[in-house]
């Protein structure tokens, strides 16, 4: 009992600290260090040079790719937010029994626990040239020729992002909505607010923390992604993650590291801005 609370706290937090120290902090430091190194075709050597960064910022392609990354993040954010909010609103305010709420909520979350890669693959029979979407549209007479932009395009990339990550919006928004005091809504209705007005002036402002948490998830997942873009675009589109993974496959680790540092700083700035609007620990 004589142990101070700081000591007990640290002992309990020690395993987490060790794991994060070894597999999060050390790798970040390593990446920062290596980003100043040089590389030959076959190996990397310690150095202190800014070549990797000057190349990075001097390349028009890199700027374009960063822009594409933000574009993916923004469009995905808009769709996941609109869909996620609507679904959460339905579950929280229109489903009446708690048992039903839990059942439908689980129905929405189960795909989260299955493989993302399989879920990406499962779009192929839909979107391919002779896929379900094209053959249906042709049989309806909407189009005469198969649409080429369904698969291996920005469209399929964003579709996959929305498919994979809407869950990350539904869960926190639903969680925040369930904690809204129902008497506030009654008060709004009693004062003559329409359903739309209640939604706009009562529910939406109170749901902001959940929206922020969902936004943090979606934006970081999309900005850090490399595999969805590669797979769903058939390697025809690029984002920053793919830039890094390409450098890695060419064994250009210093260049990959420099891009990683810039990407990490970008993501952390975005998160830093979002965190100003929400206290995560209080909202769970």
């Amino acid at each position: 009992m004589a142990m101070s609370r700081h000591v007990t706290g640290w002992l309990q937090a020690l395993p987490l600290t060790v794991v994060l120290g070894a597999f999060l902090i050390a790798p970040i430091i390593m990446i920062v260090v290596v980003s100043f190194w040089g590389a030959t075709e076959f190996s990397i050597y310690p150095a202190f040079q800014f070549d990797n960064y000057s190349y990075l910022f001097g390349s028009a392609v890199v700027w374009k790719v960063f822009f594409a990354t933000f574009k993916y993040a923004f469009i995905t954010w808009v769709f996941t937010l609109a869909i996620g909010f609507t679904v959460a609103y339905f579950l929280a305010f229109h489903v009446r029994t708690q048992a039903m709420q839990i059942a439908l909520f689980l129905l929405c979350t189960i795909p989260f626990w299955t493989s993302n890669i399989i879920r990406m693959i499962s779009w192929i029979p839909f979107l391919g040239r002779n896929g379900i979407a094209n053959s249906t549209l042709i049989s309806w007479g909407v189009i005469d020729e198969p649409l080429e932009w369904l698969l291996y395009s920005d469209f399929s990339v964003i579709l996959a992002f929305v498919h994979l990550y809407t869950l990350f919006m539904v869960v926190p928004i639903f969680n925040t909505m369930m904690r809204i005091d129902r008497s506030l809504i009654e008060a709004a209705v009693d004062n003559g607010a329409s359903a739309m007005q209640t939604l706009r002036h009562v529910i939406l402002p109170l749901t902001k923390p959940g929206i922020m948490i969902g936004t943090i998830f979606v934006v970081t997942l999309v900005m850090g992604d490399f595999i969805t873009v590669r797979f769903m675009s058939g390697s025809q589109k690029a984002n920053v993650g793919r830039l890094i993974s390409n450098d890695i496959s060419l064994l250009q680790y210093p260049s990959a590291a420099a891009t990683s540092v810039v990407l990490l700083i970008t993501v952390l700035i975005v998160i830093g801005i979002l965190l100003r609007f929400v206290n995560i620990r209080k909202e769970l």
């Binding site: 987490l16 600290t17 994060l20 597999f23 999060l24 902090i25 050390a26 790798p27 970040i28 390593m30 990446i31 290596v34 943090i216 970081t220 900005m223 850090g224 992604d225 490399f226 993650g241 890094i244 993974s245 890695i248 680790y253 990959a256 590291a257 990683s260 990407l263 990490l264 993501v267 952390l268 998160i271 995560i280």
Partner: peptide, 21 residues
């Protein structure tokens, strides 16, 4: 904040960093 960073860091950075170490 370390734990939050661990969550939001692009996964490929962990892969790359740990691989390099």
């Amino acid at each position: 904040y370390m734990a939050i960073t661990s969550l939001v860091i692009p996964s490929i950075l962990i892969s790359l960093g740990v691989g390099l170490i």
